[in-house]
Simulated scan of single mutants.
Amino acid sequence: MDRSKVAIVIPAFNEAQTIQAVINELNDKLTDVDIIVVDDGSSDETAAKAREMGVKVVSQDRNRGYSEAINRGFTYAAESGKYEYVTTVDADGQHDPESVLAVIQAASNADIDIVIGQRNEHARISEKVFGLYFRYKFGIKDPLCGLRLYRLSLFTQYGQFETFDSIGSELMTWALATGKRYLCVDVNIRDRADQPRFGSGVKVNLRILKSLLATTSFIGKAKASV
């Protein structure tokens, strides 16, 4: 794989405290990979701090959410005509740059459509349930890790990153259900300094379980379309 054909898309909402450190670490490990920061309507200096680092910044007019920010980054990457792969990385510093490198290297060593990062443990009981279902269906234990690499043609073929609240897993699920080639790579997730943006507690667990129900229906429809 030519790494100049890889873009890293970082969705960022009010991450001014971490965005420069994240970019610095990625630049140290992946000097030949372009970084695209999608500022998701931040009210702090996220966009300005990212621009200071010399990376491409795409700004949303308002906060539209994690998946829509990734969708915007994928669209920019596709329209540029420069890239064959996109890697999604969080802006909070939890994705270890060594793990980002490992995900990209996994695609370098095989003809793969998607590389899925898998964490050592799940933060929430609902994520464990989600993972058990995906292990049964596809042999994948961590479908909700945000660190993944996609062949960009998956996005252009499917047309969206997410159309329902899949917790950022719809494009991956479509790829799995339609027989695309994949690998799983163990990744290291570091602790976040402040509170998680996704939230915690009963409400979040219910959201994830509701998403799982919608995903089971989606998988059936995706398989039927092949």
Rank of each mutant, 00 (worst) to 15 (best):
D28N: 13
Y136A: 15
F198R: 10
S217Y: 10
Y158F: 14
T87S: 08
L132H: 00
T18M: 11
I23C: 14
Y85T: 00
L176F: 14
V55D: 03
D28V: 01
R181Y: 03
G199D: 05
G93T: 06
S42L: 10
V9M: 10
Y66W: 11
D111L: 04
S169R: 12
A214I: 07
R62A: 09
K56E: 13
I189D: 04
R62W: 03
F155M: 08
Q105K: 14
I10K: 02
T75W: 02
F138N: 01
D2A: 05
Q17P: 05
T46N: 07
V37C: 12
I10M: 03
R181Q: 10
A7W: 04
D28C: 02
S108A: 13
R190T: 00
S126W: 11
F74V: 10
S211L: 00
N27P: 01
F130E: 04
V103T: 11
S59V: 07
G201Q: 09
I112V: 15
N188H: 09
M172D: 03
N24A: 12
S126D: 14
A69F: 06
V202P: 08
R192G: 14
D191W: 01
R192N: 12
P97S: 11
N188W: 00
V33C: 07
F218E: 03
Q195E: 14
L149Q: 01
Y83F: 12
R197M: 12
D191S: 12
A69P: 05
L213E: 09
H122N: 11
V6S: 04
S59I: 06
E98T: 12
